[in-house]
Amino acid sequence: MIDFLQIVIYGIVLGSIIALGAIGVSLIFGILRFAHFAHGDLMTLGAYFALAGVAGMSLPMFAAFGLALGATALVAVGIDRALYSRLQQVSPIILLISSVGVALMLRSLIQMIWGPDNEIYQSGISMPWTFAGLRIQPTQVMIVGGAAGLMLLLHLFLQHTRFGKAMRAMSDNPDLARLSGINTQRVVILTWIIAGVLAAAAGIFLGMDTRLHPIMGWKLLLPVFAAAIFGGIGKPYGAVAGALVIGLAQEMSTLILPAAYKPAVAFALMVIILVWRPTGIFGGKVL
């Protein structure tokens, strides 16, 4: 039982990280109608920006993280302005392929700057807290709390602000959004800012949970897409639910399968959903 609960905790931590990525993928698909394959590497970039703050500029942890969120958002908007916004008129397939190119470029750049080795934010071992036999790391609490906080902020933004509602409106019906006088370009930029911030947070949390590595985000891309599809792509709330399911399923699979099969579990779930209910559990768009 304790073992099982321990695995549930790992699953929730992983699910929180996946959720931050999946929300971004889902929002981008809702607004721009394309699958953003560079999202994993955007997460990696965020993690390394934070490393640059902590290790390079010796900033306090939180300042470095904040800076990394902002810088990643800036890069995301920059890529959109320089590339995606120009290709938008062509076709969603071209956009998708160009995002694969962006993914490769980001990864190479990260490797060039920071090298191919594992990195960590802080050396030293933190003592886990124990509750009734369960071990919980302080970083795990921070990850789940941080992710929940960001999701709450996003929820408040989407439900209660003028541009948040406009974002949902545009995701519903882009033509009608334009007809209503909504400045759709502003909404697009806002979407990239949010997706960039959340991706960076996901990358930083992943780096805290494990280690930093130039392909850390790329490896998370599959579960992130699985979560977004599971929840119904274009539905950010579904993405959160999907992420928890994928995170828990991946961790629980270690009870019966070797840990190396974790990505296969996400992949299998994604295939099952695509075959059984291509619009996801919450009835999103078809990829």
């Binding site: 949902r168 409106a169 995701s171 009608l176």
Partner: peptide, 8 residues
């Protein structure tokens, strides 16, 4: 057609 935002 499609003249409302269905999820809003």
């Amino acid at each position: 057609e499609a003249n409302v935002f269905p999820s809003l």
